[in-house]
Amino acid sequence: MDESKFGLLLTLPTIFLVVVFLALPITYAFFMSLNQIELTISPDWDFVGLKNYTGLLTDKRVIDTVPRTLYFAGLNVIVTTLMSLCLALILNEQFKGRNWIRVFILLPWAVAPVVSGVMWRYMFHQSYGLINALLTSLGIIDKYVVWFDNPTVALSIASFATAWKALPFSTLIMLASMQGISESLFRASKMDGANIFHRFRYVTLPHLRPTLIFVVVLQIISSLQAFDVIFTLTRGGPGQGTVVLNYLTFVNAFERLSIGAASAMSIMLAVLIVLLSGLSIYISMGRKGKAKG
């Protein structure tokens, strides 16, 4: 058989799945986004064109999620990037027990986001949280604090929980990138009298730059998709305190049953994510090019 026909044949199962369960639903979602569908009122579709989209810009609930999402994303990006950079630097050093630590830090990656939400909920729980117990025994607080009553604190915890889960993966790609720095470059800089900080500043950091940007973009994307963790951590509370963009989409779709508006939101979100992902791929292509050159 002709080589290319044979190849095409092998990809058919995948093509079938992707068309039926990816392309079709997206098209479906797009059509729904052009209609007003309020299932609490009636099952009818009412074509409204782009009204759902323009409606997003004036919907107070949507506008309210923007600062929350930005705060959530910003904190997540900062915590994840700094921590994974620091951890990768440590793991790139030779010391006893390093291999054990490498295994241990994989743990959050394996934990389902839903479960990590539960874990962080119990860490900060008002009556049986580890944090309350620790802070009390250290004398920092007199009595247990209801952390989740404060929207900013709750949002921060959600962000930490997300960063916690993202740490292993970002560390691994940073570590992989660090290991791509040639040893002779370090030796040369040592010969030139560079100390450890110089070496970090002038050798490691420039080499890592594309990877750092990649991690940042990745965390922005994951913040835009945040849902599972918040679902078990706070259920969006207190009030609307932890309702970020993606969570609002869920609420609109499955609690308010405003299918048209929810579809429009999700499409907007998808467009945003595809653009950002394109950016991250562009960056990691640069990463590869650099590694080769």
Partner: peptide, 13 residues
């Protein structure tokens, strides 16, 4: 591209 599609878009359809 298909890796980038958020599940929230697909869930209703």
């Amino acid at each position: 591209v298909s890796r980038m599609i958020p599940s929230m878009v697909l869930i209703i359809p």
